[in-house]
């Protein structure tokens, strides 16, 4: 295992895991407390349309997927904010149409030779160095937005009606939140793939939620959980020659169920 640390692809994988953990810890916490897990799943699957578009147009995948997913997230935010009772229906449309759009574009790409599975299930061991810089920039963006808008997001998440009565621009904040979900989703596609993203956006925050006294601490704890899961999953994948994305999620899920069992056992 130690010899793997000297290999540049493994070092890149560790850096990618750390960068994706920051996004997952922060955005995942907001997704969980706002009960938008299904919405985040829809955005994740819409990202596949961005992947397909990147191949079709011959553009870099990560920036193109971010732009496409951000646009899908903004449209979804507009539709679901005004008609929250139809959120599940809108998400259903977004989920399937994004995937279909991506598959069709890849079909139409002349002479394409894309490993679709790497986008569906992740390929953290093949993340190139320039993508790490892009992920770093996206993390800075998320941290900057959080720093300047933390109380607004806290107010929106805790009590949207009160936030609105205070004169906060709740629709703009809601759209910004979904925009950040889109950014996080595209970052994590490389780590665990879009099928498994939802687990990294939900399991670490749920584990962190019960013991955190504030949303900020929940975000920090979720980031730490996420990174530990990525490390253990990578170690498992390396040791037993398993798929890295699935190994990471398996570690997270087993930890989640173990913690829940212990809580239940300890509960009076």
């Amino acid at each position: 295992m130690l010899e793997a640390l000297s290999m540049s692809f493994f070092q890149n994988a560790l850096l990618a895991a750390a960068l994706a953990s920051v996004a997952c810890g922060i955005i995942g916490s907001l997704v969980v407390v706002n009960r938008q897990v299904f919405l985040a799943g829809g955005v994740a699957h819409a990202a596949y349309g961005g992947v397909g578009l990147a191949f079709f147009l011959g553009l870099p995948v990560l920036p193109c997927a971010v732009a496409f997913t951000a646009l899908a997230a903004l449209i979804t935010a507009h539709c679901t904010f005004d008609r929250p009772e139809r959120t599940d229906s809108y998400v259903g449309v977004l989920w399937a149409s994004g995937m279909a759009f991506g598959i069709l574009l890849i079909n139409l790409t002349p002479g394409y030779n894309v490993d679709l599975m790497s986008y569906l299930f992740g390929s953290i061991l093949t993340v190139p160095r320039h993508d790490l810089w892009f992920m770093f920039g996206l993390d800075l963006l998320i941290l900057g937005l959080l720093h300047f808008r933390y109380q607004e997001f806290l107010s929106l998440s805790f009590d949207m009606e009160f936030a609105r009565a205070q004169g906060l621009p709740v629709k703009r904040l809601y759209s910004l939140l979904l925009l950040m979900v889109a950014v996080a989703v595209v970052m994590v596609i490389q780590v665990v793939g879009l099928i498994l993203i939802i687990a990294l956006l939900t399991i670490p925050p749920m584990l962190a939620e019960t013991r955190s006294a504030s949303l900020a601490r929940m975000m920090l704890a979720a980031t730490a959980y996420c990174f530990v899961f990525c490390l253990l999953g990578l170690a498992l994948a390396y040791q037993f020659d398993l798929a890295s994305g699935a190994s990471i999620i398996a570690v997270a899920a087993l930890t989640f169920f173990a913690v829940r069992l212990v809580h239940r056992w300890r509960a009076p």
């Binding site: 805790f158 009606e161 939620e209 504030s214």
Partner: peptide, 12 residues
């Protein structure tokens, strides 16, 4: 506002 709308386990 009415308090019933809050998420039951919000960390705050």
């Amino acid at each position: 506002p009415q308090h019933a709308a809050f998420a039951p386990s919000f960390p705050i």
